[in-house]
């Protein structure tokens, strides 16, 4: 199949970028989207042009490293899929595909399709952990947790931190990402000990990183590759309000 690509090219953080046209002929419809970009890059290298830089790692849909806006949709037209799990059979022969980086004030573009998502790391560092003594692994069943709670916490923990929620949100809000970690911990007995500090610190850090407010449009859940529920945001709000009320 033939493809017409319009790809965002930007030299570095401080340079203005623009969309550049590329044409690919004879691409296999069973290629993944990233394999298609690899093919393009091979062509560019052979013609002494700079390859298009994009983030990727596992290419199995579980690491959260890849992620671009494809035709104005985070991770492309398929819902609940990462960019690496998207295949060219989802596009028509001869189609024009516009590829842009995930954008938000908190995600500065580093180069081409690569964005700096370190803001997420700083949010996690501000409270996305439980403080436990190191040493031998504790007995697994010493803290009772029922099956439903464990599953629910695991659903929240499934967030891969790709940033599609922020890119999809009109406000560039990181509420879904931050809340997934907060409610993951708040659901488990181990996380309950530090719940007040955690939510206040993480929300504080989220605000410091220049993410916007959540307006509950719920677009994040629709585009999230892991279908992280917006009810996590509701739980974050509950935890925040509770922590504010109980704060000494």
């Amino acid at each position: 199949m033939k493809l017409h690509l319009k790809i965002w090219r930007q030299k570095d953080k401080n340079t203005q970028g623009k969309l550049v046209d590329y044409w690919l002929e004879d691409v296999n419809p069973h290629m993944s989207f990233l394999e298609m970009l690899d093919t393009l890059n091979e062509k560019l290298v052979l013609s002494d042009e700079m390859p298009v830089e994009f983030d990727h790692d596992c290419r199995e849909g579980i690491c959260g490293q890849c992620g671009v806006m494809i035709n104005g949709l985070a991770h492309g037209p398929l819902k609940n899929t990462t960019t690496c799990q998207l295949h060219l059979r989802e596009f028509k022969d001869g189609e024009t595909i516009v590829i842009e980086p995930f954008r938000s004030k908190a995600f500065p573009v580093k180069k081409d399709l690569k964005v700096d998502r370190a803001a997420f790391d700083r949010i996690i560092a501000s409270g996305g952990f439980v403080s436990v003594n190191t040493g031998q692994a504790p007995e697994a069943n010493s803290i009772p947790i029922n099956h439903e709670t464990a599953e629910s916490a695991f659903d929240s923990a499934a967030c891969i931190g790709c940033g599609a929620c922020v890119a999809t949100c009109k406000n560039g809000s990181a509420a879904l990402f931050t809340s997934a970690k907060i409610s993951h911990m708040a659901k488990l007995p181990q996380g309950k000990e530090e719940r007040e500090h955690r939510v206040l610190n993480m929300v504080h850090q989220m605000d410091n990183e220049d993410f916007g407010h959540c307006s509950n449009t719920e677009a994040c859940e629709v585009e999230c590759p892991q279908s992280i529920s917006v009810l996590n945001i509701a739980q974050m709000n509950y935890e925040y309000n509770r922590a504010k009320v109980l704060k000494k």
Partner: peptide, 23 residues
């Protein structure tokens, strides 16, 4: 604040994921 934080795209089809009145 939201206008400053949110990104804008040359091609934008994000509207499919939410209701117009919520935006």
């Amino acid at each position: 604040k939201n206008k400053q934080s949110g990104g804008s795209y040359k091609t934008d089809n994000r509207g499919r994921a939410s209701k117009w009145y919520s935006r």
